[in-house]
């Protein structure tokens, strides 16, 4: 089959769409928060993900408005336990754990977080609090494991993940693993940068939208 035979109008459209997507992907790379830019710091030599992974992106017929894609995830992710849909029982236990922690009774706080966990075992914020409490108790391995578990359940929540990587960095520092701590800290930083970028973009988009709304009550495209 010759090249010419293959170039049908459909193919042309698809290629155009692909190129558009690739270009778009390049533009929005930085604020893509669901995946930390520092992919796998342990093996930096490994080849990165093959660049044209376009086929997974369903080729859209028209390019989406550029502001939507990076912002949707941030908007959808809860920032705190209270916003995570936790029930009143878990929130009550969180308050108790907070009191225990303020009183320096970290073991009691851990027990209260574990009670909360039995009620909502898949809540990433509870796992994160367990990690934090384990760190107070100087159980750095347990702190790191719980933070990892929180990452697993966080499903790409950048707030959860950045805090977890900070906890992991602290846990590794406590163990004397400074290289590992550095890697974890840079992941946390990258996530924070991504959050900031996304928030700026969001603010800009909001400003643009409001100015657009202010300037004209013109018909929508």
């Amino acid at each position: 089959m010759s090249l010419a035979e293959r170039i049908t109008p459909a193919v042309v459209r698809r290629v155009a769409a692909l190129l558009a997507v690739l270009a778009l992907a390049a533009c929005v790379e930085q604020p893509s928060v669901s995946r930390p830019p520092v992919q796998e710091p342990v093996t930096p030599a490994a080849p990165a993900v093959p660049p044209p992974r376009a086929p997974e992106v369903q080729p859209p017929l028209q390019p989406p408005p550029p502001s939507v894609k990076p912002l949707a995830p941030l908007a959808g992710y809860p920032k705190s336990l209270a916003a995570s849909g936790a029930g009143p029982a878990v929130l009550a236990l969180a308050r108790q754990a907070q009191e225990s922690r303020s009183a320096g009774r970290y073991d009691a706080a851990l027990g209260q977080w574990e009670r909360a966990l039995r009620i909502e075992p898949r809540n990433a914020f509870i796992w994160q609090s367990i990690a934090e409490t384990q760190l107070f108790l100087k159980n750095s391995e347990q702190a790191e494991s719980a933070a990892q578990k929180s990452n697993s359940l966080g499903r790409g929540n950048p707030w959860v993940e950045s805090a977890n990587w900070r906890l992991i960095a602290a846990a590794r520092t406590a163990r004397g693993d400074s290289a590992g701590a550095q890697q974890a800290a840079s992941r946390a930083e990258a996530l924070v940068a991504a959050i900031n970028a996304a928030q700026q973009a969001q603010a800009a988009a909001a400003a643009a939208a409001s100015s657009a709304a202010a300037t004209a009550a013109s018909p929508s495209p």
Binding site: L3, R6, T8, A10, V11, R14, V15, L18, P52, A54, P55, P59
Partner: peptide, 21 residues
């Protein structure tokens, strides 16, 4: 990475096409 023969995209996925080029 390969498409089944039944797939519309089968013979002409952009990736395949790029590879061919």
């Amino acid at each position: 990475s390969d498409y089944a023969s039944c797939a519309n995209a089968g013979q002409s996925s952009p990736l395949e096409w790029l590879k061919d080029i």
